[in-house]
């Protein structure tokens, strides 16, 4: 147990070095990620013409939601962890990992953390610069930010996204190519996760259903918590659902892993 814990900083360090080798990639990603915010600004500015609010949102409030969403995405979204795991299983690269006294899920979690840290390191300058430039042109509401409620929701989102990614990618034990499945789930995450619009703009009945799904706790919930638009009871209930879903996916991933290992054939020397 102690040797396992002792090896984790090394796993993190290897992951960090591997990811920072592609810092140009991260820089480009960070620069491109500002584009949807710009497009949202232009679109919603037109939609708000001649009206003060849409749903419960003012234009600055809505744009702040999209800006905070960028941060949530940077902190909590796995980059290509799903395809890395899939490749490890498909190409037999799992063999050396299986020989180590380290649970695979924990190993991947530390690589995921390293990936997020590498992304934040490479992206922090362009993202801050983009925010600075955009905040001069776009009205944003920073005064209502609630980091105390937002931070636990952000960590929950990272855990939830990691556990869901793990579940999806472990299906590689059975499927040759999981990219269609991954992109299908991406689209659900975008639509029902509040990536395209805040979920509270949906009609009330649809919103009530969507709030029960895990996707809402990947983007919408942490973003709304950071923006300070959630009441205390809604925040507590959201956290319970978020960590509940994350736990459920972790248990599911464990079951898939055990079933998959029984099917896995290690070949080669």
């Amino acid at each position: 147990m102690i040797s396992t814990l002792r090896s984790l900083p090394t796993v993190f360090s290897i992951g960090l070095q591997r990811q920072l080798a592609y810092r140009w990639n991260y820089l480009l990603r960070a620069l491109f990620s500002a584009m949807p915010l710009l497009v949202s600004w232009i679109f919603w500015q037109s939609a708000f013409r001649d009206r003060g609010t849409i749903g419960d949102y003012t234009l600055p409030g809505l744009l702040t939601y999209y800006a905070i969403l960028l941060i949530v995405e940077a902190v909590s979204s796995p980059a290509d962890d799903d395809f890395q795991i899939s490749r490890e299983i498909r190409e037999g690269m799992l063999n050396p990992i299986l020989l180590r006294p380290l649970p695979y899920g924990l190993y991947r979690f530390f690589l995921f953390l390293a990936g997020r840290c590498a992304y934040l390191t490479a992206a922090i300058v362009p993202v801050v610069l983009c925010f600075f430039l955009l905040s001069r042109a776009i009205p944003l509401e920073w005064e209502n930010l609630d980091p105390w409620r937002g931070l636990p929701a952000l960590l929950g989102s990272a855990l939830l996204q990691f556990s869901l990614t793990l579940c999806l990618s472990l299906t590689s034990f059975w499927f040759l190519d999981i990219s269609a499945l991954v992109f299908l789930v991406y689209s659900f995450e975008f639509l029902a996760g509040g990536h395209v619009f805040p979920l509270d703009l949906l009609p009330a009945t649809v919103f009530a259903v969507v709030r029960l799904l895990p996707f809402a706790y990947e983007y919408w919930f942490p973003t709304a918590a950071l923006c300070g638009t959630l009441s205390h009871p809604a925040w507590v209930a959201g956290l319970c659902l978020q960590f509940g879903w994350a736990l459920a996916f972790l248990v599911l991933a464990h079951l898939i892993w055990r079933a998959g290992l029984r099917k896995y054939t290690a070949a080669g020397g």
């Binding site: 991260y26 480009l28 620069l31 584009m35 949807p36």
Partner: peptide, 17 residues
């Protein structure tokens, strides 16, 4: 830039316009 896979993300981002 040797690792230029992010350009696809760039294409999708820019084409939202």
């Amino acid at each position: 830039i040797i690792q230029a896979e992010s350009v696809l993300l760039g294409y999708y981002s820019i084409f939202q316009v």
